[in-house]
Amino acid sequence: MNEVSAWRPRLLNGHWFSQLPLSLQDSLLQAARLQRLAAGECLFQRGEPPSGLYAVVEGAMRIGAVSEQGKEALLALVEAPHWFGEIALFDGQPRTHDAYAEVACTLVWVPQPALTALLAEHPPYWRDFALLMTQKLRLMFVVLEQQSLMAAAPRVASRLLMIAQGYGEIDGSRRVLQLGQEQLALMLSLSRQTTNQILKDLQQQGVLRLGYGEIEILDMAQLAACVAAESSAKIAPRSP
């Protein structure tokens, strides 16, 4: 067993990899190598050429961008066992965002040449990579809709649920999220003050416990109810 194959059980915890044909799983692991990053280290930056596909098996990657004025947009913290980097596989264009290690990370990396050779030999595998990309596209539409229609508090609750559920990539839910309040505010394009107040309100209601650099969900059902109440209000019939 090589050092990449040793991470197979961790990758199998993710829906996408676990549902791949066994032959494709094997091909990816055979072509892959491990890459380790220190906290704050850059993996790639916006505008760089495609370098392949990555999976987080330890730690978390920060995906986002910084404007010329220094304003940061944080799209996601990518944690195990998520794969990322597939957009550039399809169009061969430069990277769309920056990727930095939020904490010390271990990544499974499948280089671009190995991927293109694999897909040239087995064209049906394109569908499997398309499913990885469309899964994220669906989430993006949900997030855009929420940003347009939801008030701040249910948006915070919804994003916490998404993160706890691994954005649909894992079974079950995590109770403790390694997520700072500032990071959450950046993800939602809310002020830190607004985000902090919403989280404190949820803590007072017994829904959350706030710690240093982490948020523990104490009542998952009540957190979901915050989102459901907002959704119900949006579709409630109007009075004549």
Rank of each mutant, 00 (worst) to 15 (best):
P21V: 12
L24C: 07
Q25K: 08
Q25N: 10
D26Q: 14
L28P: 12
L29E: 08
L29V: 12
L29C: 12
Q30P: 00
A31W: 03
A32V: 08
A32Q: 08
L34A: 10
A39Q: 14
L43E: 11
Q45H: 03
Q45D: 00
R46N: 07
G47E: 06
G47S: 06
P50T: 05
Y54K: 01
E58W: 06
G59L: 08
M61P: 00
M61Y: 03
V66E: 15
S67P: 03
E68F: 01
G70Y: 08
G70P: 12
K71I: 07
A73G: 02
L74T: 11
A80D: 04
A80M: 02
H82D: 15
F84G: 13
F84P: 14
A88N: 09
D91C: 03
G92P: 03
Q93W: 02
Q93L: 15
R95N: 13
H97V: 15
D98L: 04
A99G: 11
A99W: 01
A101S: 02
C105P: 07
T106K: 09
L107P: 14
W109S: 05
W109Y: 14
Q112W: 09
A114E: 15
L115N: 09
L115A: 10
T116V: 13
L119S: 12
E121N: 08
E121V: 04
E121C: 04
R127Y: 10
R127D: 00
D128V: 01
L132S: 02
L132E: 01
T134V: 07
T134H: 01
Q135S: 03
R138H: 03
R138Y: 02
R138D: 03
R138N: 02
M140S: 12
V142F: 09
